[in-house]
Amino acid sequence: MALTEKDPITGRETTGHEWNGIKELNTPIPRVVFLFLGLTFAFSLLWWALMPAWPLGASYTRGLLGADHRQDVSRALGAAQLDRQAWTQEMESLPYAEIEARPDLMRVVSESGRRLFGDNCAACHGAEGRGGPGFPDLSAKLWLWGGELETIEETLRVGINSTHEETRYGQMLAFGRDGMLSRPEIASVISFLRAHAQNVGEPDPRDAQGAEAGAEIFAEQCVSCHGEDARGLKTAGAPDLTDGYWLYGGDRASLTQTLVNGRQGHMPHWEDRLSLAERRILTLYVLGLKPPEGGPDDS
């Protein structure tokens, strides 16, 4: 066999093997390695004794502490629930007026409400509830179905055009696509709407045409949902078309889209996903949302 030699720097012997110039020293394993191996192994032995650890056919060693992470979770959840019961019960049972008179409960509304809104609603309505095209600005308080506390609570419970059995159902018909109105008729009714509404963006030369014919078409086709004065009907979830707040836009292009293809917003229902207390917190929270300084953003 090959000869060992002494490494001048460490003073250790080599093993005598060599591979393309690489040699190995025969240094004994430092004691700390065994020490730590022993320590970690001892820790493991201890842990196996205390915790569920080794399989035994269909069962396993339970461990001296009787720990079980499923039970841990249900216990922790139970404790948390108990902890919160003090106020959740009140939140569920007290009339809104009494909750609003209680600073302690209203603090929960503003703190928890912000978190609940951020986790469940902000994706569609924006972090401040100011919405965007197709998603209503909740701080503007111009409601489709109504802004009373109970109405909002119900909206949250069943959603709008959702999969809930009792969902609120509202649809803006596709007048153009479904052939109920011709293109010129749609153009006229749009002129009529723009003449009577605010926030309609840049004036358009086509606005001058057909507003009178449009008024007639409106009276025939639209009042059943939007009301005689176009101020919306809460029973149909149809918006006020004169208030200057547009869910989809008041310019001619957006209005044409709305009338040709119809609109049907989808608001999920929350009955299965949020507790009653949480839905009531959100109801109060939504009604407390502040519009930005200087009125609702209409761009």
Binding site: L37, F43, S44, W47, W48, A53, G63
Partner: peptide
């Protein structure tokens, strides 16, 4: 199951050495 997690954890600790 909890016991599988215990094994994974302890072997990971020993693995350090």
């Amino acid at each position: 199951p909890h016991w599988v997690q215990t094994l994974g954890m302890t072997f990971s600790v020993m693995l350090l050495v």
